[in-house]
């Protein structure tokens, strides 16, 4: 395969990853990292560097669409970024000491866990009307959004900010370690622990993953993990796909979103575990 074939085929894979990524609140990194390592045989550390760039592309591209639709809870997102960015900086440093096989196994476990968490909670869609969470009330993290599927304005309250912050620190750590947006961890943290509606969680996660990724992207750039010939088709392809995916999200019901999420996660989780355990 010549460099031209590589760039063109990788761009196509990236478009697909972008569509799926924005649809389920991930950065597309969960598809890009396995694609680069399993299909193209790229070193996992370079794959992670390229992927973190694609996460930013997805987030910035999709966020432009979501903010105008008021689906994103900017206050809650920004508040939780305290934990994710701190986690991301710690994680970017940890990668130097961890062996590649550990990264594969961690990748598999993280995705396996998120698919279970998402599957179990797939019917809990009722928003909360009151909150006695003092942190959430102090920072006023509650919100409302217009649900296009149900055709009405839905007001919701936020609880569980402390478990939310802890989970978000872990999400930031994992994001930096694996080059993924870790929307796989952020979405369950918001909709299960903090009771944000699924669509709000997905849109807010999409906003957050870009900021989290930016915190580790600087470290990866300086360390020479962002290879331009890999990053270029990945960033452009994922961005294109994500822009399209963001347009579709409002029109699909929460249950469909969750089921796509679960199936994709289980498949990739098994693949990565296999690569880490039996290399």
């Amino acid at each position: 395969m010549t460099p031209l074939d590589f760039v063109v085929s990788l761009a196509l894979v990236s478009v697909a990853a972008g569509v799926l990524g924005s649809l389920i609140g991930l950065g597309g990194g969960v598809i890009i990292v396995p694609a680069l390592t399993l299909l193209y045989g790229v070193d996992i550390r370079l794959a992670i560097g390229a992927s973190i760039v694609s996460v930013i592309a997805t987030s910035s591209g999709a966020a432009a669409a979501y903010v105008r639709e008021k689906m994103t809870n900017l206050r809650a997102g920004m508040f939780l970024e305290i934990a994710t960015t701190t986690g991301a900086v710690s994680g970017a440093y940890l990668t130097t000491v961890l062996p590649a096989r550990f990264l594969y196994v961690l990748f598999g476990l993280v995705l396996g866990y998120s698919s279970i968490a998402t599957f179990r909670k797939r019917h809990a869609d009722q928003p909360l009307l009151v909150s006695n969470d003092r942190i959430a009330n102090y920072f006023d993290l509650h919100g409302s959004y217009y649900d296009t599927a149900e055709r009405k304005e839905i007001t919701y309250k936020v609880v569980g900010t402390k478990p939310g912050l802890v989970l978000m620190y872990v999400a930031g750590l994992v994001s930096a370690l694996l080059g993924i947006g870790s929307g796989a961890l952020k979405v369950p943290a918001m909709d299960s622990a903090m009771h944000l509606p699924m669509k709000v969680s997905t849109a807010t996660s999409n906003f957050m993953i870009g900021v989290t990724a930016a915190a580790s992207a600087g470290v990866y750039f300086i360390r020479g993990q962002i290879d331009p010939i890999i990053a270029a088709p990945v960033a452009a392809g994922v961005l294109l796909g994500a822009t399209f995916g963001a347009r579709v999200l409002g029109k699909i019901t929460s249950r469909t979103v969750r089921m796509i999420f679960v199936v994709v996660l289980v498949a990739i989780s098994l693949e990565m575990l296999q690569k880490g355990v039996f290399p």
Binding site: A214, I229, A231
Partner: peptide
């Protein structure tokens, strides 16, 4: 060319920072 690509990638990394 690769330096120009890297410049573009850095601009992309800047967008969420600008947003914050």
């Amino acid at each position: 060319g690769r330096a120009v690509v890297v410049l573009g990638v850095l601009l992309l990394i800047l967008t969420p920072i600008l947003r914050v």
